[in-house]
């Protein structure tokens, strides 16, 4: 698997670490249920998913990749900080 880091170009999966699905952080003051859903519940799609990867062995940027969980094809990658 190769991930096209917006800063460094396409690199081998070995350079990246994974965190999981991109989920919005509950608003300040949100109910505990919102936090529970955020921390524990997942759509876990069989298909495209937006997920966090870090280019840990490269520029260290956190990235958001859109990847298909069936084909593993990566459709888009952006820096997580660039909303």
């Amino acid at each position: 698997m190769r991930i096209d880091c917006p800063h460094c170009g396409p690199r081998d999966r070995r350079e990246f670490s994974y965190r999981g699905a991109v989920l919005p952080l509950p608003e300040p003051g949100a109910a505990d249920e919102a936090w529970f859903a955020h921390v524990y519940l997942r759509d876990n799609p069989a298909g495209p998913i937006e997920e966090y990867w870090q280019h840990e062995g490269g520029c260290r940027a956190w990235l958001v990749a859109t990847r298909d969980t069936i084909s593993h094809r990566i459709h888009a990658v952006r820096a997580a900080a660039a909303r």
Binding site: L25, Y52, W62, A79, A80, A81, R83
Partner: peptide, 13 residues
């Protein structure tokens, strides 16, 4: 370190 970087970039850029 990874966690802090994630907080900075993904949560509160």
């Amino acid at each position: 370190v990874s966690h802090l970087e994630w907080c900075r970039e993904a949560l509160w850029p």
